[in-house]
Design a protein around this nucleic acid. Structure first.
Lengths: 334, 334
DNA sequence: CTGAAAGCGCTTACAG
DNA sequence: CTGAAAGCGCTTACAG
């Protein structure tokens, strides 16, 4: 007993009006009488009318849909941010369609952007950086595109970003202030800009103290070869380990501890994102906070502003925690 | 310099075929020659054709879209599960559209289901239980609907669920075995079945030891009034605190610790979901694990099976960790 | 094996 | 203020 689909035609028949007029009332376009409005609303309620956004979008050119491109929703940085952003979009009448790289690459590649465009979203908010050869393609697609959590300027694109170099520097300075003197960096993909920016700031901090971050102390890891990297790290005499994000820091802490390293004493470990606060967990690791909620809201507003027709590029992130701050935990001394 | 939209018409013109034939080739419907296929593919590539799924869905009746209804993506149980499910859907050519209750209620209410139906998804996977008065409506909508993480049978709906009562019992038995004797339950919404099921199992375990879980030791909390509840809890002499999920457990641990309670010694705290493992964090709280990955995959497969036309209701979850198991941490003795 | 026509459910011009 | 027609880009019958 499947319910028959109720369309505008049914409402028109019920009210004795044309589908055109019914549509106009429902979309609150100017020019209709109170009486007509009441009749339409009554009929819609009675028959249980629900608009078909696919049809609407096809004709009008606006699907009221925003694509969110992500890598890994397990990382609380993504899920926390996505939660805020997606709910904000909903409040403005936009639904979010999720697209992942399905563990292929850290980039927006052709395969991905193609499936996104097939959905004709009004806008695209991407946690992923575009592949170099996709930049022009994306710009030409004519769909507002925002890179979230990454600086867009190297691509000539809109981006909502924090100062990653400053974040890395803060991590380095903190470790120095704790008395650690041998830096190591545990990065993620070696070619993603945000990863290199944090590394850069970190190296700068130690360089200022006359200590170089040497090549053999820089590691780029995904989970596959993680164990081997930790062995290298444990073998090295590094005592100041800065991780690209908290997820990597958690892994590193577990792995180093298992190898007998006294974290928070002999070795200091600093993560990034402050996912503990996002999850309202007890503070454990020392990490760099970029103000998750403000950051997310800034991204959502930037996208909505773009959709509302603002031509100007969204301002880079400038919320409360504009400057990344160190949040001390138990994985560094003091 | 917006790129002109390339449609089937353009491909037809380019190849000298009809749009009909082009469509047939692209959808791999029977009956076309190798030659035609090659010409079509060449033209699509050359012109950069990308199908419009909105138009396709409107005509064909299938949008290749699945709605995911959630409460709070910040909770790793949701984000971890959603990550796996959404990626699995993508692999089968379905995109996920996210719908949240926007912090309104723990239920699928009319407002929510209405916005879902406007998108004409092929299926709905819901982390939220339906409101009582929506059950019939949803059934009649004729869209495959799966309740994930909740038993569907009370609603006569398909559900992929673990044995929540057994999970609660496991928590209770563990706390008993640690020597704790005064149980308290920190639940979430008082009227959600899964919350009551865990409570039931927990109470049963203590009842079997001759210890009742009394009303004044049962709390239903959302974050707003959390602080007050913890005060009650700290004031009570409960030493066996079972929390509805890990997120609540984290809050409770922090709050109790701040009030001078020695967690893991005088008082044992057990959570639920094992989000630590999902996030690959060091094990800290004692929790109940239901086998997150298997669970999620089971949900995704159930949905896809339903969409593939299987009439049979999805089997309740029966993965590797079919029975919830206790994962000991530092928040209980021993 | 291929094509001309109709139609999915809307919204957009255009008339009146 | 309201309506008849056209059309968004596809896919589905239906002919040939």
């Amino acid at each position: 007993m499947e319910k028959k689909k109720v369309t505008l035609k049914d409402i028109a028949a019920r009210t004795g009006l044309s589908v055109n007029t019914v549509s106009r009332v429902l979309n609150k376009k100017p020019y209709y009488t109170k009486d007509v409005e009441a009749r339409v609303n009554a009929a819609c309620k009675e028959l249980g009318y629900i608009v078909d956004m696919n049809a609407s979008g096809l004709r009008s050119g606006s699907t009221r849909t925003i694509a969110i491109l992500y890598d890994d929703l397990v990382n609380p940085f993504y899920s926390y941010t996505t939660d805020i952003i997606s709910k904000r979009f909903e409040k403005s009448g936009y639904n979010s369609i999720m697209f992942s790289n399905n563990d292929r690459s850290p980039y927006v590649d052709y395969e991905l952007i193609r499936s996104v465009m097939a959905r004709k979203p009004d806008g695209i908010l991407s946690f992923l950086e575009p592949a170099e050869d996709m930049v022009e393609f994306i710009k030409n697609a004519g769909i507002p595109f925002i890179i979230f959590g990454r600086d867009g300027s190297p691509y000539g694109m809109a981006g909502v970003a924090a100062d990653e170099v400053a974040g890395g520097r803060a991590a380095g300075e903190h470790l120095l202030s704790c008395g650690y003197r041998s830096p190591a960096y545990l990065g993620s993909w070696h070619d993603v800009k945000v990863c290199l920016d944090r590394q850069k700031g970190f190296a700068e901090a130690f360089a200022a103290a006359g200590i170089p971050l040497t090549e053999d102390r820089i590691f780029y890891v995904r989970e596959d070869d993680f164990s081997a990297v930790i062995d290298c790290l444990a073998a090295s005499k590094a005592d100041a380990v800065f991780c690209f994000n908290d997820m990597i820091a958690f892994l590193a802490i577990e792995a180093l501890s298992a190898r007998g390293v006294a974290i928070g004493k002999d070795v200091g470990v600093v993560g990034y994102d402050n996912v503990q606060q996002m999850l309202k967990m007890p503070r454990f690791i020392t990490t760099v906070d970029v103000g998750g909620r403000d950051f997310a809201e800034c991204g959502a507003e930037a996208m909505l502003a773009l959709l509302a027709g603002g031509e100007e590029a969204p301002t880079p992130y400038a919320g409360r925690h504009a400057a990344p701050v160190i949040v001390p935990g138990q994985t560094t001394r003091r």
